[in-house]
Design a protein around this nucleic acid. Structure first.
Lengths: 314, 314
DNA sequence: GTTCCTTTTTGTCCTGGACAATTTGACCAT
DNA sequence: ATGGTCAAATTGTCCAGGACAAAAAGGAAC
């Protein structure tokens, strides 16, 4: 077995999602990470430190603060990883069995069977049930498995890729609507997670909406232009947990300001939950929230944008 | 019409792909960009400058050097944009007509018809012909349309998203192979362009290979682990033109070193063309190159990795 | 418990210097 | 002309260490 390569600072930035400045300032302030230096005096991060940084990034995304993590002992740290993983297993839904099975299949690297099992579940539950009761918990479970060290990164990648493929397939096979609202889906620059958006798209198309997906990372001004060009009734953007928390609110405000006032703005995803309510912005608490919002939109008569009804999913 | 928002330095980094350090050093050395400053003395880039930076980035990706671009007059600059666009229209293939039609449909924002036209073309030409004679030139044409200012960014996004969707759909509907080589497909971190990879995947699956796609941005060490876990015969990675040129060679070498020697390594995409030949690394000159490489692999008897035959596509 | 205010924490930006890797261009030999 | 070698210019990335605003935490008064 090869010994793992050490990385320079920009490679660590890519791999962990922590900026160069942050890496340097952590080193200065907390003494970690503590990279060695190469001939030119440049930082070289051993693989173990990069692993640790990846974990810290994810814990921070889940709401822990750096000070807490740096203060923690080794034992406490790893218990935090597990605690974080466990905390959100609230409702042992009916899909639990399927989810556990899928996890086992991913770990066994058995792609064909995994694909088959997911397809089967989809057929049995219908697309909506599949997404809400299987895909969402499964995403969570995969994230947790990674965090507690049971999954490699590539297994997470593989799962994500499979699921994206499956969802696109499903969306493609649905009949295109001509009556429902026209919904433009995308993410802002810096946010490259597509899976959540695809899940919402599937649900919305299933409910008769016309979805126009721009994929990830559309500049705000282009979202505006696209909304106008495609005569969208609603613009929906999603923020993952990994999105820099401080940037969510400004991005949303700016987008809201850019869009014509008769266009609704829906914001969903883990990263959107920290968002304070704003006039003219609907925060979707979860997947069902999207369906409720669609219902509300239809009820209210289209084009009523001034103070849309509060949708509090709790 | 709203006036477009100005961006701070990290937003510009995201939007243009030029690093913060590069932006600052260009300002220092060449006097462009010349952002204004906000109350705190931080750089604020007007939208026009960001547009210009985006163009420059793309021209640089196409081989021009910054010094050349900064020295150019306004007229010369825009003529470079067009020249760069025109230079690669070499073979007026049979798909030319379809490509032009598709471009018009994208510009007209007519999604349903576009989708239908592409589907039709695929049916008529077959998947292989479609990818080689339509998708590849169309990608090029879309890039050119953007560069000469005829397309907005969101139109490029929309096209890419549609095409990805279509290709996945096609791949999903192909019968899974059980005999061909097992090929692991992905990109290295920092490379987030998936479309080329999907095109290759479609061609390879069509030719009877078993493809395992990890999506984009897999850390090198995870590519290694995935290759082992999935008993891959071949690992294929792609580099777009936008990938930092200086990093291609080191990444490939490192990956080659990480992988077991009996696993072939294929490298494709525009960004791979600048790559000097290395032992144990097959550079794919174009899409057909992938098919040729597959043929060679089958001919040579699997597992022959020591000095694979040169595949020079010219 | 809630509201308001102060302190600490934390990420990002700044300047200006340095340097290695690549490319260019000049010069020379075939 | 063609090819090869070496010096000079170009260019992206790294570093140090200072600064500061936004967010979170902690406390105090209600």
């Amino acid at each position: 077995m090869n010994t793992r390569p050490a990385l320079n600072i920009s490679a660590v930035e890519r791999d962990t999602g922590l900026g160069k400045d942050t890496l340097r300032v952590w080193e200065r302030r907390y003494g970690f990470p503590q990279p060695t230096r190469d001939n030119h005096g440049e930082r070289v991060y051993p693989a173990e430190q990069v692993d640790r940084l990846r974990l810290m990034k994810r814990l921070i995304d889940h709401g822990y603060r750096p000070g807490r993590l740096f203060a923690a002992s080794e034992d406490e740290f790893s218990s935090l990883c597990h605690a974080c993983a466990a905390k959100s297993v609230a409702e042992p839904g009916s899909g639990d069995e399927v989810v556990r099975h899928a996890i086992r299949l991913i770990k066994a690297n058995d792609l064909p069977i995994l694909r088959q099992a997911l397809n089967q579940a989809m057929m049995r539950l219908g697309l909506q049930g599949f997404i809400i009761d299987i895909v969402a918990p499964l995403n969570q479970a995969v994230g947790e498995a990674w965090m507690s060290g049971e999954f490699q990164i590539f297994e997470e990648h593989l799962y994500t890729e499979q699921m994206k493929s499956l969802l696109r397939q499903a969306i493609g096979s649905l009949p295109p609507s001509v009556v429902g609202p026209r919904i433009l889906l995308t993410t802002v620059p810096e946010e490259q997670h597509l899976l959540g958006l695809l899940m919402v798209e599937a649900l919305l198309v299933l409910d008769g909406a016309t979805c126009i997906s721009l994929g990830t990372q559309t500049p705000l001004f282009d979202i505006q232009m696209a909304a106008v060009a495609h005569r969208a009734d609603i613009v929906a953007v999603s923020f993952s947990a990994a999105f820099p928390a401080r940037q969510v609110a400004p991005q949303v405000s700016q987008l809201r300001q850019l869009l014509p006032s008769e266009v609704d703005l829906w914001v969903g995803g883990t990263g959107a939950q920290r968002l304070a309510p704003q006039p003219g912005v609907v925060v979707l608490a979860n997947l069902r929230g999207a369906l409720e919002a669609l219902e509300v939109w239809r009820g209210c008569g289209h084009g009523d944008q001034s103070s849309p009804p509060e949708l509090d999913g709790r």
